[in-house]
Each structure stands twice: as C-alpha cells, then as structure tokens.
Design a protein around this nucleic acid. Structure first.
Lengths: 147, 147
DNA sequence: CTAACCTGTAATCATTATAGTTACAGGACG
DNA sequence: CGTCCTGTAACTATAATGATTACAGGTTAG
C-alpha cells in the first residue's frame, strides 16, 4: 500500500506553475514534464482549483497559483488531492464481535493511537511549503548545464 | 486509500493472545472475536510468527506471544504485517522527464520530506506497546457487566 | 465568425491490493 | 487411527489507481 502518487504529482504541478510563471502552463505542457497524460494533469489541477490553490478557467490556456508559494504547505496540497480521508490513514476492521471484550473495546483502544500517528505525519507536511520545494530544486538545477 | 486493516487485526489478535493466555487461542477462536474467516487469521498469525512476535506450531492448537506485551510495540506489529513498504508510504511518480529541471529534481526535493513525515508517524507507533493496549481494554471492560 | 486550441469530464481499461472463501496437505495427539 | 489444528494454494469479488479515448463547451486569434 502507499499514498497515491497523485500527491507527488500535485507538488510537481505546482512547482512548475511557480517556476514557469513567466510562461503559460497548459495541461499538455505540464504533462510533458511529469511524463503522463494531460487528462491526469487536468484532473489533479481541478482538485487543486477546488481547494483554492490554483486558478484555471475553462477554455483559457494555463493555470496559475492562487496564493504565494510561501502560503501553500504540503499539507494543503495533500488535503486538496484527497489521498487520505480525514482521520482514516489506518484502516480498521469494522465488524468485531461485541460479545467478546476485546472485540468490543479494541477500536476505542487503538483509534487514538492511530489518530496521533496520522497527525504526527501530517504535521511534518505542514512544516514544508512550496517555496522551500522550489528553492531546493533551483539550488539543484543551479549548477553548470542545469545538471 | 488507507493502510490495510491487517494492521488493526494483528493488534486485535495479539491482544486476544495476551488476554486469553490461560486458554487456547485457535484461529477459529480468534476469528470469532474479529468476526472474519479463520484463514485470514492464520495468514496474519503466520506473518507475526515470521517476525518473531508469536509462536505457533503446525498441528498444535493455539498461538502464544513470543515476547512480553511490554516488549512488543505497535511499530513491531506494523512492520510484521507489511502494510507499508520500507520508506514508501508516499507513492512517487517514477518517470518524470529529465529534460525539464523540475522533472529532473522534483524527487530529490520531495523524498526527504516524505521520509521525515513517514518517520514521524512510525515514531508514534513505537511509543505504544501491546501492554498499554491491553491495559486500556481491561480498563474499559472492567466496568459493570463488562460493558 | 469560424477555426484552432484549451479545459472539464464521462467512460473504458489494465493493473494491483485487499479480504473473504473453499479446498486440501500434513503435523499432533488422545 | 481419527479428529482437530495449522499452512497454503487457488479462486472470487471489490475497490483504487493511472492511462487513455472521446467529446462538450468556453475562448480567442485571424
């Protein structure tokens, strides 16, 4: 199991929007860098748009960031693309036998731990914003011959 | 997406082994509390056995903990049942276009953040052991009429 | 105004993981 | 020896993912 690459691709898309803000970033253009189908890009951009991270208009070429890169955290992106439902990173088995004390109480014993673990992960995502990702890439690409 | 309920079921199983250590916990017995098929239980017990958390012998009824409950963390269980591959909680898109600076460097910019987030989550799991889970359940079930 | 281009979205498909189930081989033990 | 148990293979249904084709409808340059 792993969290859908939709999340990683969404970060990729937003990074392109920022680094190509002088140009026009169409879904075809982005799809080429990500190396996937333009429809996949449009679907994800649609989610980012609904979350208010991006501005797009039907018919009008290109998408733009709706906020400053420093105002967009990875947690915002993660929530925007719905890769994990609210408070359900960990699947639970629903139908335990309530006649057994373990079956009856296992969920209430385990759920708080799962929630805490999920929150710890999400807090890490909140600590990083798009500006930092872009900065890291520019530092890497800044060398000779854009290596 | 979410992490397979195999993890939650594994915790359930180990809790039963501890709380029923006076009796014999066969896969049929456990399956009744979890409310699933005995084969599902045997599969998970097999993984717990390979990880050294549980002792079982073919033909001999029942499984037993191979360690003290205080020595088994939720992280041990999580690793035992292989619900998440090593360092790959977050899926990444493999084939970015390396001719684009973003495509070329996005992974190295994002992977450290993903790793840190995953570690933060796993650290929370390491902070809780089976003894604490059992204690919580016994406290809940300790009331009148085992409510 | 229309042709070219873009976004939005439905529909389909292959792939993969999960969870449940049946079936059966082989060990253990009264 | 017969019964019960574990270990597994095999099959099923279900769901999520990612890629793709197709097309409706908005926008704009010429």
């Amino acid at each position: 199991m792993n969290i859908s690459s939709r999340f990683a691709v969404a970060i990729h898309i937003l990074t392109i929007l920022e680094m190509n803000k002088a140009g026009v970033s169409t879904s075809d253009y982005i799809a080429e860098s990500v190396n996937t189908n333009p429809v996949v890009i449009r679907r994800i951009v649609g989610m980012l748009s609904k979350a208010g991270l991006v501005e797009v208009k039907p018919g009008v070429a290109g998408a733009r960031l709706a906020k400053l890169p420093s105002e967009i955290t990875l947690l915002d992106i993660y929530h925007a693309v719905h890769v994990v439902q609210e408070d359900s990173l960990f699947g639970i088995h629903e139908n335990s036998d309530t006649k057994c004390p373990v079956g009856k109480h296992i969920q209430s014993a385990v759920v708080p731990v799962f929630s805490a673990a999920q929150r710890a992960m999400e807090n890490k995502l909140q600590e990083v914003n798009l500006e930092e990702i872009v900065g890291t890439i520019q530092a890497s690409a800044g060398g000779i011959l854009s290596e």
